[in-house]
């Protein structure tokens, strides 16, 4: 599938939206709904994000994002056991002025840690 990867360091941070093998950022309108895949890491329960090509990252910034969340989830779920990711699910993300964030407080807390 064609997915896009959010790149950038630090959260919340600046992101560019790239399709694989793209050298330049592609245009994604603010109206386009985008999704990422998150899960818990088997070994330690850490929050992880699907980064594409059967890889997962603890950084939200490394998330593969795409308009088709279900397809992204199917791709993330593929792989021989033991899957590194436990309980993978689709989350919506938003993009505004180049910054991408998870939608909803629950996912913000998962991405950035406890608030207290």
């Amino acid at each position: 599938m064609v997915y896009r990867t959010a790149t950038g360091a630090g959260l919340p941070g600046q992101f560019t939206i790239r399709a694989p093998n793209e050298s330049e950022p592609s245009a994604v309108t603010t109206e386009t709904k985008l999704y990422a895949i998150t899960a818990s890491r088997l070994r330690d329960g850490a929050v992880i994000y699907f980064a594409g090509k059967q890889t997962w990252s603890v950084k939200f910034a490394d998330s593969a994002i795409a308009p088709d969340g279900d397809a992204l989830l199917a791709e993330a779920a593929a792989g021989p056991p033991p899957l590194e990711a436990v309980g993978a699910y689709v989350i919506e993300v938003t993009q505004a002025e180049g910054i991408i964030r998870p939608v909803g407080l629950r996912e913000e807390i998962r991405a950035f840690g406890p608030t207290a």
Binding site: S40, D44, G45, A46, V47, R106, I109, R110
Partner: peptide
């Protein structure tokens, strides 16, 4: 779970 280990938001 029978041994008290839950999987929560950030860790077990």
């Amino acid at each position: 779970l029978r041994n008290g280990l839950y999987l929560q938001l950030h860790a077990y």
